[in-house]
């Protein structure tokens, strides 16, 4: 019995050995680049002192984590981080899938290529530059809105960088504008990969475009959508630092609307420069994301095992 089993295992291994061989460089790289440095997470529980060495430093339990919770801002930063990211996930999904489907429908090759290049443009510009562009529009003294648009409607100047109430919309807009192009290309690649025969058959059966999209395109790119969404959920406690730090120009008056975990950590540790506390923040963010992903993946598995990530 044991022998047969071992024999079968040997055969299996032989069949699949070439495939496992293919994975080796990638797995090795992840080991070095990602898994090895994870050992450094012990720093989060240490009071690092270099004269004692990292491993020799004193253990201090969860003290490095305290500053994330023992502050009156804890609620604001957690709320902002989650709400923004949730909005981003939903909006990105709608916009990116929508644009990808439209792009796929465009018949003119030239225009299709033009659109495809253009949607990616915002993705190529760094957030610092986006912040300058935003400033060009929103500045008190010289901004396009205050100097050109608002006077047209006979409205008074608005101190954009002092008024938190506008910023949830501004940030959401900028994020979608900047990120949707990238996701759109991902979805487009998936849509392009769909076998054309499905559509040909559907057209013959007299299905309308809407029906085709609903019953062919969307189901077939569902795995990609699921994956992208799960990934976004996994990073729900992280936020785009540039978006929340650079774009509002680090303006204190806006913190209630713009302060997220990453910016809070950055500002809090600017002077202290404590690597224990910064790795504690990273660990907290990862852990929450990890739990959320496991949960959502579990839910996805319930509905459709194929679409689940693992």
């Amino acid at each position: 019995m044991e022998n047969r089993k071992a024999g079968k295992r040997m055969r299996l291994l032989k069949t699949y050995a070439p495939l496992y061989l293919l994975t080796i460089p990638g797995l090795l790289y992840l080991l070095i680049n990602n898994y090895l440095p994870m050992l450094g997470l012990v720093i989060a529980f240490k009071d690092v002192n270099f004269s004692k060495g990292i491993l020799g430093s004193d253990w201090i339990g969860f003290k490095n984590f305290e500053y994330l919770f023992k502050t009156s801002d804890a609620y604001v930063i957690t709320r902002n981080t989650i709400l923004y990211n949730s909005a981003f996930i939903v909006l990105n999904l709608i916009v990116a899938v929508g644009v990808a489907i439209l792009l796929n429908e465009i018949r003119s090759k030239l225009m299709a290529r033009f659109y495809q290049s253009v949607v990616l443009l915002p993705y190529l510009i760094s957030m610092v530059i986006v912040s300058y562009l935003g400033y060009a529009v929103l500045s008190m003294d010289t901004g396009f809105l205050n100097k050109t648009v608002l006077p047209l409607f006979g409205m008074d100047e608005i101190a954009w960088y002092n008024e938190p109430k506008y910023w949830p919309y501004i940030l959401t807009f900028i994020h979608t504008w900047k990120g949707a192009g990238f996701l759109c290309v991902v979805y487009l690649a998936a849509i392009i990969g769909i076998d054309q025969e499905y559509y040909e058959a559907a057209t013959l059966d007299g299905a309308s475009k809407r029906q085709q999209i609903r019953s062919i395109t969307l189901p077939l790119i569902a795995p990609v959508i699921t994956m992208m969404t799960l990934l976004a959920i996994g990073r729900i406690f992280y936020s785009d630092f540039g978006l929340f730090y650079q774009v509002p120009m680090d303006s204190g008056s806006l913190f209630n609307a713009t302060n997220v975990i990453d910016t809070y950590v950055y500002r809090g540790l600017m002077q202290l420069g404590d690597i224990g506390m910064s790795s504690a923040a990273g660990m907290y963010q990862s852990l929450v994301g990890f739990v959320l992903v496991l949960l959502s993946n579990y839910v996805v598995r319930k509905f459709n095992r194929e679409n689940a990530l693992f």
């Binding site: 990602n34 450094g40 720093i43 990073r235 910064s278 990862s286 992903v293």
Partner: peptide, 21 residues
């Protein structure tokens, strides 16, 4: 194997250990 890959996207050791490696 997929999980091994996926896990790397959620956790990272942070800058200092990576630099050290």
């Amino acid at each position: 194997l997929a999980f091994y890959v996926f896990f790397t996207m959620l956790f990272n050791g942070g800058l200092v250990p990576t630099y050290f490696v």
